[in-house]
Computed example of a mutant assay.
Amino acid sequence: MADSNPASARISATLIGAAEVDTAVRSFLRTTPPHRRWDVEHSFDWGAADADRLTEGERSAVEFITLIEDHLPGYFAMYDKFFPVDDTVDLDVFEHNRELYHFSVRWAQEEDTHARVLKEYQIASGIADPASLRHQLAIEGRKRFDVDYDHAVQFFTYPLVQEKATQIYYQRLRNVVSDPLLREILGRLSRDEARHFAFFCDMVEQYLKKYGDAAIEPMREVIADFRMPLADTIRGYWRWALRIADTATYDHTDAYEHLIKVVNRAVDAKSNKFDELVDFVAACRSLSVGARVDVGETVN
């Protein structure tokens, strides 16, 4: 029987095996033992939250990352759309998707906790009141998040870059903020994002081992069109993103080199396709640096 789910049908022929997904998921789930897990209600001294310790740029950064993290329902819905666990897919596809679901539900729970902890910080520190913050998050949260990929590896390449970029930003923001509670929160978020990144690395490596050069071009397409989440939906996104990048000296293309490291580990015999990907990523990073200079000159 052919898959009857139009969203997943075109990528069902490009999956790795369920056993390989299971290996990556088991590795991910072992990375945080119970005694190292945390939650919003019990892991922080909320009475110590103090937004007066933050600059305006740092406050803006907190507001920005709260919006990004809070869009979790949209991100999770994407996996449900393209990797469904129901009778619209063939049995072997279901096996793959069911193993992936073990990751995606844990990932979603952790990302939702990120959204909640940032929301709670805004409220406890005095950045926002609960009612206005809920309203602001609802305005952005109900907007649609979607991607249109043809190869399964792209659904793991995108979050590999995105999770690493987010981790880098949290680390750098943590280094500049003066509120100890916010530093603690950002440290926990950064560690979680590093674990998520490691899972996507494992998945991309498995796809490269199975498909070789056939996976390289789809990955290049992800980089060619890459935008951080909600870049096309948040009003004034690029000006806001530039401001928070200046606050913590950040560029999402810093994450690209980590993708190349993954490819290097997975690919034994480097082909022309591999060399083209490396050159393309280097060119994208150079263009990004040039664009930042141009924008800075315009703003100044």
Rank of each mutant, 00 (worst) to 15 (best):
K143A: 05
F82Y: 13
M78V: 14
L137A: 08
L67K: 11
L182N: 10
V89R: 06
S178A: 14
L182Q: 09
R59I: 14
V147E: 03
R174I: 04
V147C: 03
L67R: 14
S60V: 09
D86Y: 04
R174L: 10
D80C: 10
Y170G: 01
L100N: 04
P84L: 10
Q171L: 14
I168T: 08
S132I: 05
M78D: 04
R144D: 05
A131Y: 06
I139Y: 08
P159K: 08
A152T: 05
S132K: 12
A138F: 11
H96G: 02
I139M: 13
D87E: 15
Y169P: 00
F94C: 04
F145C: 00
F156M: 10
D146M: 08
V85G: 00
D179N: 07
T157K: 01
L100G: 02
E99W: 04
A124Q: 14
F64I: 06
H102E: 09
D179G: 11
V93A: 11
K143M: 11
R188T: 03
Y149F: 15
D70Q: 03
G126W: 07
T66N: 11
R59Q: 12
Q122I: 07
D92S: 13
A108G: 13
D112V: 04
L91R: 15
L118W: 08
E163F: 05
F76Y: 15
Q167I: 00
D87T: 13
A128T: 03
L118T: 13
E111S: 05
L91P: 01
L189M: 14
G74D: 03
P73W: 04
D150M: 02
F156S: 06
P159L: 09
E99R: 15
H71L: 07
E99L: 04
L91G: 05
L72I: 09
D70L: 00
E63R: 15
H135M: 06
F103M: 07
L173H: 06
F94N: 06
D150W: 02
R142G: 02
D148L: 06
Y101A: 09
Q122A: 09
P73E: 02
F156V: 04
N175H: 10
V147I: 14
A165T: 07
Q162V: 02
H135A: 15
V62Y: 03
P84H: 05
R172W: 01
G141Q: 06
D129R: 12
N97H: 15
D70I: 00
T157L: 03
R172G: 01
N175I: 00
A61D: 00
K119M: 06
Q154L: 04
F83P: 00
Q122S: 10
T157R: 00
A165D: 06
K81E: 14
D80Q: 15
I168A: 06
Q162Y: 00
F103C: 05
L160W: 02
E69P: 02
N175D: 15
N97F: 13
K119G: 02
L189Y: 09
G187D: 14
R183N: 08
L181I: 07
Y158C: 01
H71D: 12
E163Q: 13
V147F: 10
T113M: 12
E69V: 01
S60F: 11
A152N: 03
A128R: 15
S125M: 05
S104F: 10
L133E: 09
Y170K: 03
K143D: 01
